[in-house]
Write a protein that binds this DNA or RNA. Structure first.
Length: 327
DNA sequence: CGAATTTGACCTCT
DNA sequence: AGAGGTCAAATTCG
């Protein structure tokens, strides 16, 4: 993805083409990822494939973010790509500082005497991410809706989701989804709080779920939703380097505008042991380098050379295909 | 019938 | 006191 100097109109054109192309590749990888995983003959293969695909998806998402951020800054009306930014949590809404594996201290702390509700304390500082997307539900995790509320100054209700596995695993991940407008497709502001600690990363299951739920039913993949980074209320000056895009996988079938459907989404991007969305949640901000460093050992430790070539071949083939059938 | 969602009440923070 | 977040009973769905 080169940004070169061309005449403004050509640049405009070329840029749009580039964005479109990257978006399409993103879609293809994302959609066909489960199939590739299913074809893996071992968990190691699966792991590597997932790592590579995850890296690719993330890189593409970042690229799109950068492209749209730099290009559309001056043209608000122009479409931009869905991005996610590290949210400097609006006021105090960043959840507790428990990292993965931490006991749900806050839940324990909270109710003195009565089993009553509590509000997140300002002391509690966990990771928080926010972003705009047209497809706020398909983010690789399963969520259960636990509330909905009309928020002051907004035209639409905000929906509250928590990890489906909260009860089983004590996973504290939550997210809020708020529709921003009634455009077509409608834009949603999604805020994630807390890391997933449920690690329900059964890659095969995830892949299978994907096959069943997303891929097959997905008749027409949607291009990454378009968004203006600068529209985010969390105006982080360090962008775009912090746009590591927990990448809402952006292919969920378009919801009809208006209501926020209360669906849970099944795994698509997250899966695997090394590339869950958790990695992207902030914890003060994990940056690309960290990701690469973290994942390289896993990748290099896994398969032998011939295995790698297998993947090279497979992935190439995979990427060249336009559909499952082709593949 | 169990699981998921809805919705009004309740709690905490500002 | 108002706003935002969560709980949990009631309702709906598969």
């Amino acid at each position: 993805m080169a940004f070169c100097c061309v005449a403004p109109e050509e640049e405009e054109d070329g840029h749009e083409r580039a964005v479109k192309e990257v978006a399409e590749v993103y879609e293809r990888i994302k959609i066909q990822q489960p199939l590739l995983l299913l074809h893996c003959s071992s968990s190691r293969h699966q792991h590597l494939a997932q790592t590579l695909l995850g890296e690719a998806l993330r890189a593409l998402n970042v690229a799109l973010s950068v492209m749209t951020t730099t290009h559309h800054a001056a043209s608000p009306a122009a479409p931009a790509i869905s991005v996610v930014v590290k949210a400097e949590p609006h006021h105090h809404h960043s959840p507790p500082a428990g990292s993965a594996g931490d006991p749900p201290a806050q839940t324990a702390t909270i109710r003195s005497g009565s089993n009553k509700k509590r509000r997140r304390s300002t002391m509690e500082a966990l990771s928080s991410w926010a972003g705009l997307t047209t497809v706020p539900y398909d983010d690789g995790y399963e969520w259960r809706k636990y509330g909905e509320k009309k928020i002051n100054g907004t035209s639409y209700t905000r929906s509250y989701f928590r990890c489906t596995y909260k009860d089983d695993t004590g996973c504290l991940a939550t997210k809020y989804v708020q529709q921003k407008d009634s455009s077509d497709p409608p834009m949603f502001h999604v805020t994630y709080n807390n890391k997933h600690t449920c690690t329900n990363n059964n890659a095969a299951a995830a892949a299978a779920a994907m096959m069943n739920k997303d891929t097959i039913k997905q008749e027409q993949p949607v291009l990454p939703p378009l968004v203006e980074v600068s529209a985010l209320p969390f105006d982080d000056q360090t962008l775009p380097c912090q746009q590591q895009a927990p990448s809402f996988p952006i292919t969920m079938q378009q919801q009809s505008g208006g209501d926020i459907p209360s669906t849970s989404s099944s795994s698509s991007f997250s899966g695997g042991e090394s590339c869950s969305c958790d990695e992207f949640y902030s914890l003060g901000g994990i940056h690309m380098d960290n990701m690469v460093q973290r994942q390289m050992p896993a990748a290099s430790a896994a398969p032998a050379d011939d295995d790698l070539s297998f993947y090279d071949y497979d992935l190439d083939l995979f990427l060249l295909c336009d559909s499952f059938k082709d593949y």
